[in-house]
Nucleic acid binder design. Structure first.
Length: 270
DNA sequence: CTCCGATCCTGATGGC
DNA sequence: TGCCATCAGGATCGGA
């Protein structure tokens, strides 16, 4: 599910509702996520005041004075803030209950998500080797060209690797490459300088527009208040195989790249 | 190093 | 209606 726009939408939705409040209880109904939720999580969180909610790539970072709760939403995770007494759904695995009676509730049907306490998140193995933020200053055509030199890997696969750049998943890799006019199957090491510039620009624009729309809801994702994300209506190639390109009218093609469904327009992308 | 496939898990969907 | 195969927004791991 969630790529950078969905995680950022979640962050913006929940941060004002829970920041500055104290955790009074942690309810772990099912701790079997990507990694089992540690038994001592309660000791770290209970009584602590949540200072702020940050994001690094697709990770949400809940900052406390002594450390950080790292949350990843995996493929199907979502977070909502609601009244702590609201009856849970079978896939509502974890609640953080705050001092104002509201709970931050993690729902994750497929349980690919993660909830991990870390005293020093930046140096945690999950975050340490991540690539630059796509909306930050370190994400440049220079950087990508240097990093891609000699690589034969498909550019879509290359862009979806969090060591290259964080936050770009299956939907936005396809959409950004359409916006850049580049076929997803191209070898990363074969792009020209001009093309890398277009890739950087396309990723930034696509992600920013998706954030504006509250992300993309295909099935599981919802914003913090339960509404879906509306960027689905703006998708130009993703999940549009067999339909005419909105720009040139050619039929959108589908291919599997790196085990993931990929979509492109044979007329607009070269 | 680099690349590829298998893998974790549940639910929705479509074909027969 | 039922059953089975396939596919889903992610990311790690191991082997070639």
């Amino acid at each position: 599910m969630p790529e950078l726009p969905e995680v950022e939408t979640t962050r913006r939705g929940i941060a004002p509702l829970v920041s500055g409040h104290r955790v009074v209880q942690i309810v772990v109904r099912d701790g079997r996520l990507r990694w089992p939720v540690a038994a001592d999580i309660d000791a770290h969180l209970r009584g602590q005041c949540l200072l702020d909610v940050d994001r690094r790539g697709k990770y949400l970072l809940f900052r406390f004075a002594d450390g950080c709760l790292i949350v990843h939403l995996g493929m199907s995770g979502s977070l909502r803030v609601l009244d702590a007494a609201t009856p849970p759904n079978p896939h509502d695995h974890i609640d953080l209950v705050f001092d104002h009676g509201q709970a931050l509730r993690l729902r994750d049907p497929r349980r690919f998500g993660a909830v991990i306490w870390s005293a020093d998140a930046a140096s945690h193995a999950l975050l340490r080797d991540l690539g630059p933020e796509p909306l930050g200053p370190a994400f440049t055509a220079d950087y990508l060209a240097t990093r891609a030199r000699g690589r034969r890997r498909a550019i879509k696969d290359f862009l979806m690797d969090a060591h290259t750049v964080v936050g770009v998943g299956n939907i936005y890799a396809s959409e950004a490459l359409f916006a850049a006019g580049i076929r997803p199957t191209r070898a990363a090491g074969r792009l020209t300088r001009r093309e890398w510039t277009r890739v950087v620009e396309a990723i930034r624009t696509t992600l920013n527009e998706a954030i504006e729309a509250g992300g993309t809801t295909l099935r599981d994702f919802s914003q913090a208040d339960g509404r879906p994300g509306y960027f689905r209506h703006a998708l130009k190639v993703y999940a549009r195989a067999g339909l005419p390109c909105l720009t040139c009218g050619r039929i959108i093609a589908a291919r599997t790249i790196g085990q993931r469904a990929s979509f492109y327009c044979p007329g607009c992308q070269h």
